[in-house]
């Protein structure tokens, strides 16, 4: 009786051990050990440009080009040094902000780094707060940064999630001088696996064979650092590194 009990217990624990070993082996076999060295570097599309026209009942933004996703993030900084953003559709390279537009998310910043974010969802009507039209006007009055960007970071982190060497900081998301968040690729560390531009659906990280503005993107060469953002400056028309 005792022998059969011991045998049964032993077989149960052996079963659990086999499952654990199989899981570990399967995980190790699946995990990539080698980095691809053939392939292409991603092209980072230059920061999108636009001109703002303020009037009492609307704000018009005229863009130089149509975004890939047909939508753009319009952002403005509030007094709490947070970037408040709204996702707006683009029709005929124009975006219109009205007093009925409420922000979609808030990004918390610390210097030129993003430290967190909140999605402001008005699906339950509880979290509406101030309209984005008001926030944008306040930013202009208070000489704080505002503008447009295509990248959805930190709400979207797909390029960083798929990058096999992200722990070495190959893709960075600094906050630029004009307050926009735009990817920065550290070329010397990039393994050219091609995953980042495959997953970018907003068209900021591009396959170089499809990029029109080749070589004009935001790259880090020879340990150059990204510029510190500063407030109260006019939006530059062209912004390249």
């Amino acid at each position: 009786m005792e022998n059969s009990t011991t045998r049964t217990a032993g077989s149960a624990f052996l079963f659990i051990l086999i499952v654990m070993i199989t899981t570990v082996v399967a995980y190790v076999v699946q995990a990539e050990r080698k980095m691809h060295t053939e392939g292409l570097y991603p092209e980072v599309k230059p920061l999108v440009q636009g001109t703002f026209t303020f009037s009492h009942d609307k704000i018009e933004i005229h863009m130089m080009e149509d975004p890939v996703w047909k939508r753009i993030v319009v952002y403005a900084y509030d007094e709490g040094v947070s970037q408040v953003g709204i996702v707006k559709p683009v029709y005929d390279r124009t975006v219109i902000i009205t007093p009925d537009d409420y922000p979609d998310f808030r990004v918390k910043t610390n210097g030129n780094k993003v430290v967190g974010f909140d999605v402001i969802n008005n699906s339950n009507g509880a979290l509406q707060g101030k309209s984005f039209f008001g926030i944008l006007n306040d930013a202009k009055e208070g000489s704080r940064c505002f503008g447009i960007q295509e990248c959805l970071y930190p709400l979207c982190t797909r390029c960083m999630d798929v990058c096999p060497v992200i722990q070495h900081g190959v893709i960075e998301m600094p906050i630029l001088k004009n307050g926009a968040i735009h990817p920065l690729v550290h070329l010397p560390g990039c393994p050219r696996c091609g995953k980042c531009f495959e997953v970018c659906k907003v068209g900021v990280l591009l396959n170089p064979s499809k990029a029109l503005d080749k070589g004009k993107g935001t790259f880090l060469h020879d340990d150059q650092k990204a510029m510190e953002p500063s407030k109260g400056e006019e939006i530059p028309l062209n912004h390249y590194y």
């Binding site: 939508r71 996702v87 979609d104 999605v119 699906s123 959805l152 979207c156």
Partner: peptide, 10 residues
């Protein structure tokens, strides 16, 4: 997952 979508989809 509801309050994570940047464009408000549930």
């Amino acid at each position: 997952c509801k309050h994570t979508c940047p464009i408000g989809i549930d």
